[in-house]
Design a protein around this nucleic acid. Structure first.
Lengths: 199, 199
DNA sequence: TTCTCGTTACTAGCATTGCTAGCGAAACGG
DNA sequence: CCGTTTCGCTAGCAATGCTAGTAACGAGAA
């Protein structure tokens, strides 16, 4: 069985190579530059090899997105756990989220702006997805103040996502970003139901 | 000059026809089904005619998006002006925004999820864009409570946008949408700086 | 009326895309 | 050492956005 094992190992290695190459190419020149031919050339295999690993180009992007969710979760965790208190935690995790999206726009696109068939809001969702959500939830939860923490996390996540995508598309002026983000956080840090904390 | 006039009129009419056909085709089958060939067939002209009106496919999508912004502004206005008070106005305009995006996903994509070269956050932005923003601002402003109203409007718009796009992409469970939206509004209706209104 | 000329829309084609069929070689099992 | 099976490649398909070159139409002059 050792031969089969080696083959599977090599195969897995090659699959990883494809995913990495796709991500790097996308981050360097955008997804529209990621064609199956260029990708194949980059991994030094022929085009059809890609299709023995992935069903199609979309599947490759999905795989890249999955890696991205893991990265994002890790960065969010680092930002959150480095904060001294709950208020600072929300501020830092928000900044980390925005920074991730700004620093790796192509990756963020694969994760969020792509019609990708991953189970998201279900228990079957990949672990990296849950990890990312849990990080946000851990930062948002302390400010829930009676409201449903998960629901509030979803709303906050959506707000961050909207901020990032609109800014990236030029729909929001970049200059005011810091103030806008602070304002958004201020809206959430007092909880949705009245007895507010102070700023 | 009347002949030239007629020609220009016919030309404008045809341009409108192209835009409408593109929108309808996109709304019926999605943008990936909108190819220049199918579009040309639909307007009963040959392919190159499209390029005598628009620089390329992207320009056609931009034109569709512009129409969309006008539509959205109108619907937002209707929702806002029908509300009895400021709190209700924000609730209704939010619902209208979400409803628009849900009812016309392809149009919404052209407006927001496309790399389109329109000036957005500048005075040169098309009137329809300003109109839409102004509607939101008129609904959000009364709840600013000391904060910069434009900035708060931008943040709220971003939140709505994030909610809509994440839900559409399956990233947020659809079942909780109403509660999530209400929660988001609750976060904004007390203004970002303390002396909160009641729910 | 007839000729000329500019406009206009079409036919045909290019390069590139994602994807697949079919072959040839290499490697494994006996 | 041979038969079989796996595997990756060459070549090609249909469809894409876009463009070059051409034929036809209509307006104005002779």
């Amino acid at each position: 069985m050792s031969i089969q094992d080696r083959r599977e190992r090599e195969r897995a290695r090659r699959e990883k190579l494809i995913i990495t190459a796709a991500r790097e190419l996308a981050e360097a020149e955008g997804w529209e530059a990621v064609t199956t031919r260029r990708l194949a050339e980059r991994v030094e295999y022929s085009q059809p090899v890609l299709y023995s690993h992935f069903k199609g180009k979309d599947a490759i992007m999905t795989a890249v997105a999955l890696e991205g969710f893991a990265d994002l979760a890790a960065e969010l965790r680092a930002a959150r756990t480095a904060a001294p208190d709950a208020t600072e935690a929300l501020a830092r995790i928000s900044a980390a989220y925005v920074a991730f999206a700004e620093r790796r726009p192509a990756l963020y696109d694969a994760m969020f702006s792509q019609r990708v068939d991953l189970p998201f809001a279900t228990p079957e969702a990949p672990a990296a997805l849950h990890a990312g959500f849990d990080e946000l939830a851990a930062a948002v939860g302390p400010h829930a103040d009676g409201a449903d923490p998960d629901l509030l996390t979803e709303a906050f996540w959506a707000a961050l996502h909207g901020l990032v995508t609109l800014m990236r598309g030029g729909r929001l002026p970049r200059g005011q970003h810091e103030r806008r983000l602070a304002l958004l956080i201020a809206c959430f840090t007092r909880g949705p139901a009245g007895s507010g904390h102070s700023l």
